[in-house]
Every structure is written in C-alpha cells, then in structure tokens.
Design a protein around this nucleic acid. Structure first.
Lengths: 160, 160
DNA sequence: GTTCATAGTTAGGTAGCCTAACAGTTAGGC
DNA sequence: GCCTAACTGTTAGGCTACCTAACTATGAAC
C-alpha cells in the first residue's frame, strides 16, 4: 500500500462524481438531440447573450464580444471559436463587426434572430429536463439544488 | 398552489442543472486531456471491465460483451461501437472473438493490457479530481455526495 | 427451404476540436 | 519617423467520435 494516502473518501467521491458526469453525457445528448441548434452553438449564443449588458449599451465599452474572449469563455482555442462564429453568422444568428478602437479585433453580437433562437432552444430543453426532474422526490430535488452551487465552485476552480 | 402550472421552481432547477452540466464539460475535458486514453475509449474499457463477472469465467454464459450490448450501454449506435472496438483491438487493449452459441455475434473482452490501462487511467483521473475536491469545504463535499445518487436516478430514467 | 429478422461491418458524411502557418494592426525602442 | 516585437483573428490541414444507409452472414419460422 502506498503510504501517501491523500484521503480515503476523497478518491471515492472523485470516482463517483466522475461516473455521474460520464453518465450525464446521455442526458446532455438527449437534450441536444432536440434539434436545430447544436450544444456548441447554443453555448456560444447563450454566452453572447449574457455578455450583452442589456440593450442600454453604455458607449464606454464597445458592444459585442471579441473572438478571443469568446474562445476563453467557452474553453476552446481561437480558431475553433472562429469556426463556430462563422456558422452562426451564416445562419443569421450572429453578426461580426470590426472593433472601432482596435482594427485587429472583431466584435461579435447576436442578431434578433439569434436572441430568439437562444430563448426558444433554451426553453425547449429546460422543459424536457423539467419533465424528467418532476419524477423525482422533493428530497431528491433539494439535494440536487444544494449541489449545484458546489458544482459551480468546482468549475470555477478551473478558470484559475 | 399551482394547479396547472408546470411548476415554477422546476424550470429554474432544470435551467441551473443544465448550466452546471454545461460547465462541467471543462472539467471532463481537463480530466481527459490527461492523455493516452480518450474519454470514449476509457468509457468502453470500463464498461467491459464492469461486465466481466470476475475472472472465474464460468462456462455457462460466454465471456465478453456483444457489440450491440456495448453500443446500448454507451448510448451510441452499433457502427460507432464497432469503430471504437477496432481501435481498442489494434491498441492491444481488447479482443474480439466469435460467440460460440451464435455465429452472428461477436464477444468483446479486455486483454490484460486493457485491464491495466483502465486501472491506471482511472486512478490518474481520480487523483486529479480528488485534488480539486480537496479544496472544497466538508459541507460542500457532503452536498455533492448527496446529489450523486440523485444524478444516478436521473440518468437511469433515460434508459427506459 | 424460402423468407424474415438479427448481428455486425463497411462506406460515406458531419460536427467540433486541435496545431501550424499566415496577414493585418498596434506599440515600443531608438 | 521607422523597424521590430507582440497581439488578433483567419485559413489550411488533420483528428476523433458520432451518425445513416447499404451490405453480408447467420439464425429462426413456417
């Protein structure tokens, strides 16, 4: 046995968590099979929506999100982001504009169609998942709700 | 309260859960970036390992798992499973043998190298994740642990 | 002993990611 | 003022993992 015991329950928890995440792929796939918008595209659209600081558009910071920032937010490399952006643009869901302050940069914003698409795709997926969650007990739902912030904290760790 | 309403908090919970899963992609990617074995391949190997009912190999039921069963277990179509199996075979981690009772079928089993690869890849990933989990509070870990069976129940729903 | 169903493979295609190489823009050093 | 270095994004080429459709071979039913 290795003397360097890093905590006995910790490894077991890691194992189980990993297992749960692995199985969750099905769930995500099921939800995404919904149609029309792929998971990657929906993620990007959602990010763009969150980034739009309301329509108020304070003139201080140019509107839209830069490609590099999008890539960082989505956890992919810049060329991958470009690829997705081009697809969204072709689908009429996003728009690319030159940054007025830095001609190297590109600002990406949602079109109206994009905003609408996010909302509808989101709602449909939420409804499907809500249907599944409705079959759980109240206790189960409470346990799940309690764990979500923890998962958020775990994910936040990775940003650093 | 809500007689007809599809449940107000349910949609919110679905939304948050979906968000958490979406972010968890980073985690999974990080864990899988580990090297040598891809997520898909590790999943398949792990499944084969779980399916092997001990090494005793009772002659009663032929050993190994059939391709269709593998596909069903992994939530992919048969050709996708075949593809992965062939890769594992070429890597010397799995073995394909004709089913003695049904010449249409193929039985897939792990080689010794496959068993070893699962164990080592698994341990490495668990260790990385355990490191992350170790920075959480006890309460957080308890909340996470409590939610895992719930996630399992959710995932089980999909099988049906 | 045809005919129908089942098991798996092959062929061809798509989405999403990557690295490497490139072009244009900005910012310093002198 | 330039010339070099750093930065932003696109293009090119390649990989993995998934899919559907078409095929082969075996088994089962009648």
């Amino acid at each position: 046995m290795n003397a360097s015991e890093p905590a006995p329950g910790l490894l077991a928890l890691a194992q189980d968590f990993r297992e749960a995440l692995r199985h969750s792929i099905y769930l995500v796939r099921r939800l995404d099979a919904d149609g029309e918008l792929s998971a990657a595209q929906l993620s990007m659209l959602k990010m763009l929506m969150d980034a739009a600081p309301g329509s108020g558009g304070s003139a201080s910071s140019a509107s839209g999100v830069r490609v590099g920032e999008i890539a960082r937010n989505l956890g992919v490399k810049v060329p991958s982001a470009t690829e997705q952006i081009i697809k969204l643009e072709r689908a009429g869901l996003a728009r690319r504009e030159p940054d007025p302050n830095d001609s190297r940069a590109v600002r990406v914003t949602l079109t109206e169609a994009g905003t609408a698409a996010v909302a509808s795709a989101n709602e449909r997926r939420n409804a499907v998942l809500a249907g599944i969650l409705s079959s759980l007990s109240d206790d189960d739902r409470a346990a799940l709700a309690a764990a979500l912030p923890v998962m958020g904290r775990i994910n936040a760790t990775l940003q650093a």
